[in-house]
Design a protein around this nucleic acid. Sequence first.
DNA 1: GTCATATTCAACCGATCGGTTGACGATCTT
DNA 2: AAGATCGTCAACCGATCGGTTGAATATGAC
Lengths: 117, 117
Amino acid sequence: MATSLDIVFAALADPTRREILHMLLEDDMAVTDVAEPFAMSLAAISKHLAILAAAGLISQEKRGRVKWCKLEPDALSAASVWMQSFGQFEPINLDAFEAFLTQELGTADAPASILEQ
Amino acid sequence: MATSLDIVFAALADPTRREILHMLLEDDMAVTDVAEPFAMSLAAISKHLAILAAAGLISQEKRGRVKWCKLEPDALSAASVWMQSFGQFEPINLDAFEAFLTQELGTADAPASILEQ
DNA sequence: GTCATATTCAACCGATCGGTTGACGATCTT
DNA sequence: AAGATCGTCAACCGATCGGTTGAATATGAC
């Protein structure tokens, strides 16, 4: 039996899906627009979105012929709580954050917005 | 290229591995002792431990013929930071925590210890 | 009605995953 | 030295994953 934690962590394990979540942090998007920056087929992105939706990380609403995708960050709650039960690390560790940015995005600039809030 | 986030989240996506991490939260353990409560072969647990070690979530040190496994919770840091960049949820959401316990452990009792600290 | 756009479905592909089994190399005990 | 214990390795298995392609289905525009 796959619990919600299985599904959420598995959804987060793919870099394409994490990038999609980051894009949706900006604004709701149609499936075609989500797919645009990626070098893969629309069908592949559609599958990724289905996986994110199954994990509850996004919701999808069809208006007309376009399906709008919306971030649902609350779905991270259970996973976040699970991780915090190990609690021996700082909630915001700037070193780790910078290391993450360097690895994941290839830069340590832009998202000052995240730190400011 | 698999980033550290890929590897960490993928490691966390398996319930056996998450349970191993919980066990190691109590104390360091030998591979055989880790395997004992599980209904699967020692070789399978050995593989799970290798995956956790590759993710940096545990370290393994061989003393004599016994290989000791130690939790390394700092490895969760980057993943935790990544998740917190979505930040619209409470750091500790008790409803989600209880829902998680019910689903994952089949009870909502025991780990008051986690809440107390 | 016709055509274009938005999205999914279905079938397929190679690669990886989670598990098994049996053999093996180290290490401790006697 | 012999035997038991600890753990991994290697080969295998079926299932799932991440991607493709081409056809199908809605819906909107003309």
